[in-house]
Design a protein around this nucleic acid. Structure first.
Lengths: 213, 213, 213, 213
DNA sequence: AATGAATGAGGATTCATTCAT
DNA sequence: AATGAATGAATCCTCATTCAT
């Protein structure tokens, strides 16, 4: 079960192992149900070492959140094509988002499922992350179509993305790729269902429009 | 905190009080963090009485889930205008959904935030509920526009609705009404953002179609 | 499960039902593990009624002990042939003992297994009963053979009888009858194993000797 | 009450201390009435440590049973003179039995009084032990006198021994020694009460026979 | 004669956390 | 750099017992 491996690692490495184990454990069992014993064993170290490096369960969880939030943020930021049209920026950001969440399901679970439900110090941390994303999306929407109600649309879009990420994680037999999810969501959001019937869009490959037409 | 009230109530009423207290407590603190002591006190009764009527923390939580799921289901079912166009059915269902979740934020939190993250007996219970909703929405989408990708769109729409419900619950100063939320989401989903700029669609106010052309 | 039956019985009858249920429950589960709920349900009455009639768990258990001890004592006393030879008195007493314990296994279990191990108020009650029996046996032994060591022999004999009663209760396929057990024990005790090989005794049917001779 | 002693012992030693405390507590109070608090205090440690090493009350009790059963078995096995006549084997076995039970009254109480009455996982464990002893005795009896009814005689003999062990434990002022008890029981069982009047037999002091003629 | 409603007290078990090495 | 030994403080749950009718 434990990562066994070599004794006497440098601190940075050990800390990474512990965070990996913690993220996996928190994802699977939830914050309260995960025990420090469990995490220490999963990390292949003794419990006092976990405390030596990470001080407390709260701080450990917080460190997990920060690390996973940073990773997700970085993945999306790196994916967004700066300078492109808003639509294209949105498309590329969604792609980055879906690919990262698919590649790091435990991190995503910690951020999305666990941290939000545990209550106060932590819910606030992820709320910040989420509202940054919502604001970014809102800015894109404003730039793209100047719509009123951007706030609502941005929340809707983010919620839709979260839902699709969760859906993709739970076994629809040939799991949709990040690209497919992004394409579906772009179509859904951009063109609207009323036009989706005719849409053949698989992503805004051509400049200007995610839906042709 | 305690319901004070009269001692010696008939069982059915006491049971209802207990479920109310439990839903509120689980919503605020989460399944694991909520203690039976806390719940009993919130219900204004002693802990043994909670056990006498509801047997265990698991069963109590399960009873909360079932009650809130049934209430939500009923609210949506009663709101949907049977026989109307799919679009109008979706509109009326969303309206029912947003009004119910706004009126019962604790029940919604238990279903959406807590039950899904606690793990197995419970996650499955709400997964069933959610997939029923997703399937219902998918059927409407199919009927409405025969779109490919209905599964993805249905998940996106449901996720968007969940996100808006959560957003409305967390203090945007003049909280959007259920009607506004439903209208935003209909526009978002039906017409697409690329057309939202005209902002004409506020929900299918006119008989027959919210989508028109 | 409950004895159901008619409401509103006269007190004596109800009390008997309760004691029956209590003896059965204590025998099966032990004093501590048996709950008043369980006993009340087995008796087919509500718990407050049990308290109304028998006051407390302690007193209820005590009442069980007294009733079963009295029944066993009476069975043995009635079986002993007064005025007969000591050997014959012993034989008839053993016969009464084995037949009663076989007929009332729950009562026997309460006296022998449970009451002795529960600790102080109760262990003393059965200790009295047992020592009366031991004394009675010791008197017979003294009368019969004037042996020194009667105390030890009496304890041995009583222990042997208890062991055989327990053995008979636990499924040796054709369970030995009380008569057979009494015969075995008489032979064992009276003639000694060294002579048992030739013994054909099935009980001291003929005057004078339980072993022929 | 606490073993005071030094803090921070090696696990094996602490575990032994805990078992000692548990055996004493279970013997005095019974399985159900003994609380883990009580046992931990008697062992001079905190409750969590008891759980860390012995997992649960059930497992703790089971460990007590196994340890005491093994000790008793070993004592008797080591006492039996292998290769001697059956009579002499029985004599030496009884001697070992009485000496061990006198030296370890708590262990004997746990096996004889408590474990048998607690119900299923445990009663079975000691039933196995007891039936092994009964079988061993039965084999000796068969070898010694080929008697019919060995089963009954073996049960009687074992029961008599148990009774004498219990008697010796409860304060007959000059407590009989193991040797005296074994001698009484050998006489009782081997020669029979009808011959005990001569009282010559005190155990097989002379080589070869405890029964002589 | 009988019961539905209710509770104070206690017991098993778990967990985050620290100490001594 | 790392760990075996140890615990204070909850938490779930049960039970004997009483009250009001």
């Amino acid at each position: 079960m434990a990562a066994a491996g070599s004794r006497r690692l440098p601190r940075a490495e050990r800390e990474r192992q512990m965070l990996d184990a913690a993220v996996a454990t928190f994802a699977r069992r939830g914050y309260r149900a995960a025990s420090m014993d469990e995490i220490a064993e999963a990390a292949g170290v003794s419990k006092p070492l976990v405390y030596l490096y990470l001080n407390s369960k709260d701080e450990l969880f917080s460190a997990c959140i920060r690390r996973e939030a940073a990773a997700l943020t970085a993945a999306v930021r790196d994916a967004v094509e700066v300078g492109a049209t808003p639509e294209r920026q949105l498309w590329s950001g969604l792609l980055g988002f879906f690919e990262h969440t698919a590649a790091h399901p435990d991190g995503w679970a910690v951020l999305y499922s666990q941290a939000r439900t545990v209550g106060e110090p932590f819910a606030a941390e992820v709320a910040v992350l989420r509202s940054e994303i919502v604001d970014f999306v809102a800015a894109l929407l404003t730039a793209a179509c100047g719509s009123r109600d951007v706030a609502a649309y941005a929340h809707a879009l983010v919620g839709a993305a979260e839902s699709l990420a969760g859906w993709a994680a739970t076994a629809p037999d040939p799991a949709p790729t990040g690209r497919e999810l992004a394409a579906s969501l772009m179509t859904f959001a951009w063109s609207g269902l009323s036009q989706a019937v005719t849409g053949r869009v698989e992503g805004p490959a051509r400049e200007e429009s995610g839906r042709a037409g």
